[in-house]
């Protein structure tokens, strides 16, 4: 029956409405479907892997008679986490705050340093070794000192987050500025541009793709940096929450908080792509046109 209808349709000449349909909304629907299948193609594998891992973990815990204090089953993590959602949310807000403020500070510092280094050869030679040296400082040793120096408030945590994240931002920007082709600088110079105009017209836009890469690296560090700073000592926050739950053997709640942390990191990470599309739409267009 179905086959017959198809043949009939193929034999009959298309009506005007059908032709218009094909050109108009139907094509749009096709495009939507294609986009949906592309999305599935992208996120399908990771979802599948997660489901399999969860099922395996659940089975292992259920069959192996493992005590929940040692390894809670995924369903238990979700259940306990949901029951404690209010406490978790209350501790999530301060973590987000520390992450946002710390990363904002890091962005300001990173941009300033990178611009200074880009404009002055002296600054480049003076600052680059110090920038690298700053990354050899073991945060694990310094974070507790921050609390001794600055107390349990926002400041020590903001400093830790900034300290962990300003480096990728700064280096990403410096290398981004340097990625400007030499010929482009010559071209601008021949037009009569000085240092500032060359920066504004060429070096700054050239650095944007590299900046967004470093933004992605930095933002994921920012969340873990905030958690770490809180873990060392805080009144509120996911870090101190995890620490306290661990001390009372609530492994399930620790993992529930970890889950929240991961979700936040992933969301922030994805949001950088959104921002990138808004700020430098040409970059994606150009890349797509090359493939």
């Amino acid at each position: 029956m179905a086959a017959a209808t198809v043949t009939e349709m193929a034999v009959l000449p298309p009506t005007i409405e059908e032709v218009q349909d094909a050109a108009g909304p139907r094509r749009r629907r096709g495009k939507g479907q294609r986009a949906a299948s592309r999305t599935l193609e992208t996120v399908g594998p990771v979802l599948l892997l997660l489901v399999v891992a969860t099922v395996v973990m659940q089975a292992v815990v259920d069959q192996g008679n493992i005590r929940p204090e040692v390894l809670p089953s995924p369903s238990r993590v979700i259940r306990s986490g949901w029951a404690a959602r209010e406490a978790i949310w209350q501790n999530t807000v301060p973590t987000l705050q520390v992450t946002a403020i710390g990363f904002a500070v890091s962005l300001v510092v990173g941009w300033l340093l990178a611009i200074i280094v880009d404009f002055s050869r002296f600054a480049r030679r003076a600052l680059t070794p110090i920038l690298v040296a700053s990354q050899t400082v073991p945060i694990i040793a310094v974070a507790p000192l921050m609390i001794i120096w600055f107390g349990f408030g926002l400041l020590p945590k903001v400093i830790v987050v900034a300290l962990v994240t300003f480096f990728p931002v700064t280096i990403g920007l410096i290398e981004g500025f340097d990625s400007t082709p030499k010929e482009a600088s010559s071209l601008l110079a021949s037009m009569g541009a000085g240092k500032w105009r060359t920066f504004r017209y060429v070096r700054l836009p050239s650095a944007m793709p590299s900046f967004f890469t470093s933004l992605r690296i930095g933002i994921t560090y920012a969340v873990t940096g905030a958690i770490f700073a809180e873990y060392v000592g805080a009144k509120y926050g996911l870090g101190i929450y995890m620490s306290m739950q661990k001390n009372s053997f609530r492994t399930d709640l620790v993992l529930a908080a970890v889950l929240v942390t991961s979700l936040i990191s992933i969301l922030l990470f994805l949001s950088t792509y959104l921002l990138q599309r808004l700020v430098i739409p040409w970059y994606g267009q150009e890349k797509r046109s090359q493939t």
């Binding site: 082709p181 010929e183 482009a184 071209l187 060429v202 836009p205 944007m208 430098i280 040409w282 970059y283 150009e286």
Partner: peptide, 8 residues
């Protein structure tokens, strides 16, 4: 020699 047209 290169066109150096800027993508942005």
């Amino acid at each position: 020699q290169k066109d150096l047209l800027f993508p942005w």
